[in-house]
């Protein structure tokens, strides 16, 4: 569960996250990529230059608020791989310890 989930109760936040992830994939498959899937592809390309990871282990979520929206990127990088370069500070990558 993401950080956002901690502030909300019930199962609706899980439904919302699952749908966001699923639909960003399905929209690409149907030939109508949205902002989230374009960002996903480009972020994977950029980080992929500096670290190796499974593209499936990247989760990108967008939360739209009234005045600000947040983009959360969760990325699993296996420990055995060396991270070659610094990840841009705007990217909040979480290193999962395996």
């Amino acid at each position: 569960m993401s950080l956002f989930g901690l502030f909300r109760r019930g199962s609706a936040p899980i439904a919302r996250e699952r749908l966001q992830i699923l639909l960003s994939h399905e929209r690409v498959a149907c030939g109508r990529p949205d902002l989230l899937s374009i960002l996903r592809e480009e972020i994977i390309a950029v980080i992929g230059r500096h670290a190796s990871f499974e593209p499936d282990k990247v989760q990108i979520k967008m939360e739209r608020g009234k005045s600000v929206s947040t983009l959360a990127i969760e990325l699993e990088i296996p420990n055995r791989d060396q991270v070659l370069g610094a990840v841009p500070p705007s990217v909040a990558a979480r290193h999962e310890l395996l």
Binding site: R8, R9, G10, S11, A12, A15, R16, L23, R64
Partner: peptide, 18 residues
């Protein structure tokens, strides 16, 4: 039920479907 987080809220549905 939406207020209790048991059901997707209106804003959730609108945001997902844009």
């Amino acid at each position: 039920r939406a207020a209790r987080g048991e059901m997707l809220a209106i804003d959730d549905v609108l945001e997902i479907l844009s």
